Every structure is written in structure tokens, then in C-alpha cells.
Simulated scan of single mutants.
Amino acid sequence: MKRILVFLLPAMVAIACEEKAGGYEVDNGCGLELKLVKMTSSWTGDESIGAKLEWQETIVLSNDSTFLKRRNHDGTTYEAAGRYAYVTYDDRRYVELTYDPRENNIRTSCLPNELIEVTSSRQYKNISWQACDGPVLEYEAHAARCGE
């Protein structure tokens, strides 16, 4: 019995910690910030990065399962908010954003919800807009600063 507990207890702790953090880095207790770093045209395959992006964007995923998306386009900042959850489809992990319908909707998807694939703990990719001829958006994840 003791041998089982020796192996079972660390496994249970590891699983609990992974679920608590959504399985990804949340080292300061404030969540993750996804920063748009690359945009690829679904029509031509042309890529834009850095200052050449059509817009700058961040998505803050707070630990209370809410998100805030900020987009700066032509000197104007737009915001949208809602709730998110980690989901799995076809053995792939995603962040599913559900927008508050009263917010300025800057959703990048043809569907009511937006799916952003978690390709690694630091890399996220939104391909849900590609089905509507929108670009593929790639994000880098960083620990969010408290108070954002």
C-alpha cells in the first residue's frame, strides 16, 4: 500500500498543478499574455511580422477564466472581453474564447467562438479565421503582469 502511495501522490499533485494552470505557464498568478507576432495570408501565403503587421494585438488570459483582447489598428485601440476555456479537439489543445456580446467584437473567426491552438507553452496559433479567408495569426505567450 505504501508503495502505491509513493507513486500515486506525486502523480496526483502534478495533475492538480497542471489543471490549475490550464497546463501552461502561470508563474506569477496573473495569467498569460498572448502577443500577435506573425500573420500569414490564407490566400497568398505572404507573411507579416513585427511592425509590418496590419495591426498589433494582445490577448490577456486571466486566471479567473476571463480574457481581454486589445487591438491597435491605425492609431485606434479596440477592446473585447469575455470568457475562455482550454478545450481539446482531435487530440489538439485549444483556448476557446467566448466573447461578451455587449463588447466591441474584434473576433477573428467565422464562428461565435474563437479557437486558438496551443502549439507549445509559448506558441499559439489561430487558424479559425482561415476558413473565412482571414489570415492565420500566430502569438507568443508570456506571463501576464498583474493589473493588466
Rank of each mutant, 00 (worst) to 15 (best):
R93T: 00
R71P: 04
G75S: 05
Y89R: 15
A81E: 14
R93I: 02
Y99D: 02
D91G: 09
D90T: 14
L97K: 04
H73Y: 02
R93C: 08
D100E: 05
R92N: 13
Y78I: 11
N72K: 15
T88N: 12
D74G: 04
G82M: 02
R83W: 07
D100N: 06
T98F: 07
R83D: 06
T98P: 02
N104Y: 00
Y78W: 11
A81S: 15
R102V: 01
D90M: 14
D100K: 01
N72F: 07
R93Q: 03
R102I: 03
R102L: 09
N104C: 14
Y78A: 12
R102A: 00
Y84L: 07
N72W: 09
Y84C: 04
V95W: 02
D91L: 07
Y86L: 07
Y78R: 05
T77H: 14
Y86Q: 09
E79D: 13
E96P: 07
V87P: 04
Y89K: 13
D91W: 10
N104G: 07
D90C: 12
Y84W: 08
V95C: 08
T77P: 09
V95L: 13
Y94A: 00
Y94S: 00
T76S: 13
P101F: 11
E96F: 08
N72L: 14
R83N: 06
R102W: 01
D100A: 07
R102N: 08
Y94Q: 03
V87G: 03
Y78L: 12
Y99R: 00
E79A: 14
N104E: 10
V87L: 05
G75I: 00
R102S: 13
E96D: 10
G82H: 02
D91F: 01
L97H: 08
G82A: 06
Y78S: 03
Y94P: 01
R102Y: 04
N72G: 09
Y89I: 15
T88C: 04
D91P: 05
E96G: 01
E79M: 15
E79H: 04
P101W: 02
T77L: 12
Y89F: 15
R83Y: 10
R71Y: 00
N105C: 14
D91T: 07
N105Y: 14
N72E: 15
Y78V: 08
Y86S: 09
N105D: 15
D91H: 10
